[in-house]
Design a protein around this nucleic acid. Structure first.
Lengths: 229, 229
DNA sequence: CGATGTTTTGAGAGGATTCAACCACAGTGG
DNA sequence: CCACTGTGGTTGAATCCTCTCAAAACATCG
């Protein structure tokens, strides 16, 4: 999967708003890249000069707390862009972006993005909508972490992971995470995740084999997550 | 304080980017409003058709959890705008905006804001920057709530409240909140806030008389909050 | 003054973390 | 080939942080 058939195509939610001249400008300046598992696109605290549009693979975006513990904020996959927050706010990166499934990306310099925002109203509006939706999700997550128990949050995360990444033919979650990564999403200790997973398994909500998680009772998880939306 | 001397002036961070025609358009469509303590500008779940620029007073912006408990996400004061997230993302309001200090505001219809974004690149970029900074703050707060103890968060919130709203001549925080509201920012129980406040008082970090909070040892709070920024 | 809402304090229960030990497994190097 | 090492996963026990519930003190206001 390359840029032209993904982000820089007429089917991409954001870049479809570009006219031919703008598209050619981006095409001439973009850089494609391949990233191995474990490699890092940018570190928290870096100055970022451009955005990455993900073509394939999965990137985890996280902050590092004062004690060194990761807090995973989102995952980026095909078609999604990362790094734009820092580029647009003229701030240093507030997150680290690390590859968890081998990925290909398309890097676009920040000046071009800013130029597009200033000159192409539809592009600006689309990007604004994306940012605002992300902000809405962040607000929801703040409320969840502050008010729900770890078990409720884990159930909710499992649901989100299924909705976002889907399942294979055996109903196994397509995204594969370590227990520690799950803990760093939910905001709890690794051991707590292990205990809760085995509890869910015991209650026939899940089937677990190593990192493979199969959801047996989706609505049961919904009930536990206690979120009605 | 009215619109013309605040939001719709050449000194406002956002609306200073408007040219005379645009400014006149906004001026002709805006509606000024006065809001008593306890009144609500919009409720979570409402469809919002415009944004509010706050001239005076303080608005608290919060989400309501599934059990009815408020989670305060931010406060808006002079010059700040609220409601833009929902207008721009074309989603229902994800928060409620309630007046805690008698306020005056300037309401601007959403279509006008969207038109400005599409036609005025500098305006669009400025608003984008604001949104991205808010998103960065939300990400920080997620990490804090997930990783810090309630005591660390309370210390941090007290510092933020001082930095954002300042203190009067007696060094008393200018924003006055109930214990419950403090709890709904920190994400803890009211009783826990009370216990922690009296602990801070005992440690000579604060002086407390009812809702008046005087910060005696700012750097002591910083140390407790354990946040280095 | 009674009524209502807020603040305070205590005691007990429960959720979650921490620490420690142990297992499984894969990769390394002698 | 096998001991060695490191990583990830699991389990138990003790501890700690917070919440909840209940009751009392206090404040404010019509």
């Amino acid at each position: 999967m390359d840029c032209v058939s993904n982000c820089l195509s007429k089917s991409h939610f954001l870049f479809k708003h570009l006219n031919d001249d703008e598209l050619n400008l981006v095409l001439s300046e973009k850089k494609e890249g391949v990233h191995k598992r474990g490699s890092v696109l940018y570190y928290e605290g870096n100055r970022i000069n451009g955005i990455y549009c993900i073509n394939t693979g999965i990137i985890k975006v996280f902050k590092t707390g004062n004690d060194g513990k990761e807090q995973i904020l989102r995952f980026a996959r095909m078609g999604e862009i990362i790094g734009y927050r820092s580029v647009l706010s003229s701030e240093l990166a507030c997150t680290t972006a690390e590859v968890i499934n081998e990925a290909t990306s398309c890097y676009i310099p920040g000046e071009i993005i800013i130029e597009l925002i200033k000159n192409n109203g539809d592009f600006a509006f689309e990007l604004m909508q994306l940012t605002c939706r992300e902000l809405g999700e962040a607000n929801s997550y703040i409320t969840d972490i502050a008010q729900k128990t770890a078990k409720e949050r884990l159930a909710e995360i499992l649901i989100h992971l299924k909705d976002e990444f889907g399942v294979d033919e055996n109903n196994v979650l397509k995204i594969s995470l370590t227990r520690e990564e799950l803990a760093n999403i939910v905001g709890t200790a690794t051991e707590s995740i292990i205990r809760m997973l085995s509890e869910f398994k015991h209650d026939n909500l899940l089937e677990i084999k190593g990192r493979e998680i199969k959801i047996l009772n989706y609505s049961g998880l919904e009930n536990i997550s206690n979120s009605f939306y």
